[in-house]
Design a protein around this nucleic acid. Sequence first.
DNA 1: ATCAAAAATACAATCGATTGTATTTTTGAT
DNA 2: ATCAAAAATACAATCGATTGTATTTTTGAT
Lengths: 338, 338
Amino acid sequence: MKNKTTIHDIAKALSIDASTVSRALNNSPRVNQKTKDRILAKANELGYQRNLLASNLRKNETNTIGVIVPRISRHFFSSVISGIEEAAYDAGYNVIICQSLEQLKRERDIVGTLLANRVAGVLLSVSMETNDYDHLLNMKNNGTPFLFFDRHCDIEGISSVLIDDVQGGFDATEHLILKGCKSIGHFSGPQELSIYKNRLAGYIKALEKYKIPYRPELVIRSSLMEIDGAEGAKTLLSLPYKIDGLFSANDIAAIGAMKYLKNEGIRIPYDIAIVGFSNEPISEVIDPSLTTIDQPGFQIGQISTKLLLEEINKSSNSKKAKKTILKSSLIERDSSRK
Amino acid sequence: MKNKTTIHDIAKALSIDASTVSRALNNSPRVNQKTKDRILAKANELGYQRNLLASNLRKNETNTIGVIVPRISRHFFSSVISGIEEAAYDAGYNVIICQSLEQLKRERDIVGTLLANRVAGVLLSVSMETNDYDHLLNMKNNGTPFLFFDRHCDIEGISSVLIDDVQGGFDATEHLILKGCKSIGHFSGPQELSIYKNRLAGYIKALEKYKIPYRPELVIRSSLMEIDGAEGAKTLLSLPYKIDGLFSANDIAAIGAMKYLKNEGIRIPYDIAIVGFSNEPISEVIDPSLTTIDQPGFQIGQISTKLLLEEINKSSNSKKAKKTILKSSLIERDSSRK
DNA sequence: ATCAAAAATACAATCGATTGTATTTTTGAT
DNA sequence: ATCAAAAATACAATCGATTGTATTTTTGAT
């Protein structure tokens, strides 16, 4: 019961060599069809299941790719994962999904485990705490191909698939300006992550275009959880002048702010218009529905996987880092419709 | 670059035997401390990383458990996964997360891959399509311990960690009755899944308690996606008599119904009061907020993992299937507050 | 029927780590 | 200094599958 059948059990049962069994199970042309049939039948009878540990060890390769995301429960990341899985399964690869929960320590541990399991490659979106790249450089020196999506680090020779976050931040801010907002707050995340730096850059760029002075006190940095949104809103309300617009670098913090503001009797969008980022499903149903920036998660997953698989199957001398930049799109909803 | 360092490389560099290197890296008391220090230093210098494929193959065990859920993006399942990961990491196990996307074929493939990778055990919540248990029986015969959570099948000798769904369905329905509803619709899922059968049973039980006649046409079966909720609501509205309450076996379908009903000018909860199931985050922010049944996902994950680990480390003769049943709790919100 | 070529199968080494047993080295009591 | 016991290290087999090479069997032309 406990001891699984091996090719040797099949070989013994048929008085045949294990190498022939192995070749038969891999449908090698070197084995006679009749023999193959007998072996397959016996394998079935004994409930044989290939031991991938042994197979991968011998072949010195695995058909598994690892995926590291901050949180699987975020809609954006689960769409990316769906895209990854589709592209990977089509190519005959398995996928191991891991979440760092935004913690650097967990990210390090996960990278270690994936390397120890000799995955063929890794797709990752770094945690908010990732300000130290040793574990990633280690993976690079180790020769394991990997690729960033959405949240990347600047590491020589490593490709990434990104959203044009400057454009996204610009679009969000310009949209508020065109709706008549003059004093626009911004929730940003850790500046180590270029997505947040870029969304902020887009915000500033839009202000400049419309000649609205940039006031640093309107930019609030946090880890963008729901509670951070509520606190950010409180901070903005305490300013000596009124704000009439808010661009949050994610939907969750925008929603935290909305709940707080509604509770304070502030009318959205009339008193303050709001735009989020990521198009979480929750943004559609909250009242008022939240204007946001949609990111093509599924497509990001597919493209990232294809690029990674190319890298895996590429000769090491032809490697050249690519940056693939996709467009996001603004979805106008009630939180900014006035 | 491509060829990873092995214990033999370290052994050769120090003119020492590989077995000593192995023991040193595993901190065996049989190796002199000075030798350990030298080995560790050299291992670090060469960027050594244990090959788990080889190690697990030799030891004939892995410290990895597989988790199969229908969808990682469902809040309930991602909370369960958090609970699993916490309990597993505490015990020194790694977790492989897989999603069946409610498809039997994918569930089968995943089970196959996990078995081929020789996971120590599997935690699973079956897909809506799972009406055939061959792949699970195969896993059982194979000797791989596994355990169901939330959505289970009746398989002799396999434990499960469940919610008292009859009670949950009863609570939801009774709540509507106490709010004055006389004609209550119910959205149910595939009857192969006992969670849906039980929630329906709870619904019927509550009707009986309050002497409300059970009308089969008020029970609509579907796969409970958002679109199914909208269609179900349409069907209920087309009945020759009015309904004034709706209990949906999940939140997503309840939300689909709410959107449709609001669009039709039906007032919630005044015309129709609604209760969902699972306490998805979205249920809190939709307008009106959705009354629902909260399931202790994190706790389910922790308990399931502890039980599975017990099973893994148990002698095979002492196995006895357990059913652990946890309580759910009703969260009253505006969709039923009148 | 014979025999070279082709087809089928067997032999043996290997992937990297682990572990029981054997051997060598060190320790410390006399 | 000697020697048995203890400590440290080396040897060798093994986990299960794969694969290059060697050997055996089959095929089919003469």
